[in-house]
């Protein structure tokens, strides 16, 4: 059973077609890497999955349930988008941590706000908040940040910020965790610590979609790889298929530099 299925997804900005007929599917615990040059539509695809953009057409199924169908419904209400987003977590290239909250507060804020709407919130307020807090601490420990929990984002390194952002996304227990070039803003040393965390999540069977320029990492960690070019999925298969035996000339050209290394 596919946890995520995308069928014939398309997206345009004005007259520019950014995504054309995108199809792929992902099983539970699988990791999909999306590679390709800048402007190929990778990030837009991720933003469509997280409903930061609404696709123009196509179907998105999560756990075989339709969350978007461009044929029957062109636009989504805010509350529909909000509900759909909870299936996905998104880690941004630029972290986007909330600067006025500590690492732990960043992780727990959304959960705490959501808990306020629960029916038993008033009667169990203390318990609920305690529980959220403890889960947040647990997540930050998992990220190796137990000493940084009460620090503000500006006091943390880029790698630490990104790990807080990963913990923040995990706090909402998404079905699928998406990464948008999670290491592009980091130097090689800090990149290593973030990739290590993503690998650990892979070992814990987290389903992930990763947009990345780290080819070696993508080849190593992924179950499936998509190579995108000009809004189209040019190559879709196992890492061996895409990296070692690319079908398209454009893919060979793109991977050329990486393979030569």
């Amino acid at each position: 059973m596919a946890i995520l299925k995308v069928e014939h997804l398309s997206k345009s900005f004005g007259s520019t077609k950014v995504l054309k007929d995108i199809c792929f599917s992902l099983e539970k615990s699988e990791i999909l890497s999306i590679i390709g040059s800048s402007g190929s539509g990778k990030t837009t695809l991720l933003r469509c999955l997280n409903f930061l953009e609404t696709p123009n057409n196509g179907i998105i199924l999560v756990n075989e349930k339709e969350v978007f169908n461009g044929k029957t419904q062109k636009t989504l209400t805010e509350s529909q988008k909000k509900e759909n987003r909870l299936h996905f977590g998104l880690v941004f290239q630029s972290f986007n941590l909330f600067p006025q909250y500590t690492a732990l507060e960043n992780v727990t804020l959304a959960r705490k706000l959501a808990a306020k709407k629960e029916k038993d919130y008033k009667s169990r307020k203390k318990e609920i908040l305690q529980e959220i807090e403890e889960e947040g601490i647990q997540l930050l420990k998992q990220m190796g940040l137990e000493h940084r929990m009460h620090q503000y984002p500006h006091q943390l390194s880029g790698g630490q910020c990104q790990r807080v952002a990963i913990a923040r996304a995990l706090a909402l227990k998404p079905d699928i965790l998406c990464f948008d070039e999670p290491t592009s803003a980091l130097d090689p040393e800090l990149t290593g610590e973030v990739l290590k965390v993503i690998k650990e999540l892979a070992e814990q069977k987290m389903t992930m979609v990763i947009v990345t320029h780290e080819m070696a990492f993508a080849k190593d960690v992924s179950d499936k790889v998509i190579f995108m070019d000009n809004g189209v999925v040019l190559e879709y298969g196992s890492p061996e298929e895409v990296f070692d035996n690319p079908k398209e000339e454009r893919t060979k050209q793109f991977l050329g530099r990486f393979i030569n290394e």
Binding site: L52, K82, R85, F92, S94, L97, L109, L113
Partner: peptide
């Protein structure tokens, strides 16, 4: 305030009002 703050709030399932009150207001005051 960068749109990244809105987007981070949105993907965490926060409403626009929650994002304004809990994320953007204090940054705006500063």
């Amino acid at each position: 305030i960068s749109v990244g703050q809105d987007e981070a709030g949105l993907v965490l399932g926060m409403s626009k009002v929650e994002i304004f009150v809990h994320v953007k207001l204090l940054q705006m005051i500063k």
